[in-house]
Simulated scan of single mutants.
Amino acid sequence: MNVNIQTVNFNADRKLLDVIDRKMEKLGTFHDRIIGSVVYLKLDNVVHNIKDKIVEIRVQVPRHSFFVKTTSKSFEESFESAFDSLVNQVKRRKEKMIA
Rank of each mutant, 00 (worst) to 15 (best):
L41T: 00
E56K: 07
K69V: 06
Q60A: 05
Q6R: 13
T29F: 15
D32N: 15
K96R: 13
H48N: 11
P62E: 07
S65A: 09
I5C: 03
V19M: 15
I35R: 12
V46C: 01
F83G: 00
N2H: 12
K53P: 08
T29I: 12
E80L: 13
N45W: 00
V46G: 08
F75I: 01
V61W: 11
S81I: 12
K73W: 09
E77G: 12
M97S: 14
Q60D: 14
H31L: 01
E76R: 11
M1A: 13
G36K: 08
D18G: 14
R33N: 12
K42S: 07
L17T: 11
I98M: 13
S37W: 03
S85C: 09
D52F: 00
V38D: 09
E56L: 02
D52L: 02
L27H: 10
P62G: 07
L41I: 01
K15W: 07
H48Y: 02
Q6N: 14
F79I: 03
V87H: 02
P62H: 06
D13K: 06
K94D: 11
S72D: 08
R93C: 03
K94N: 15
V90K: 03
A12H: 03
N11K: 09
V87D: 06
F67N: 13
D52C: 00
S65R: 08
H31C: 04
V68L: 02
I57Y: 00
R58H: 13
V90H: 05
K15D: 15
A12V: 01
V68C: 05
N45R: 05
R22M: 10
F66H: 09
E80H: 12
G36V: 00
N11P: 04
I54P: 04
S37N: 13
G28W: 08
M24Y: 03
F10L: 04
E56H: 02
K15Q: 15
H64W: 11
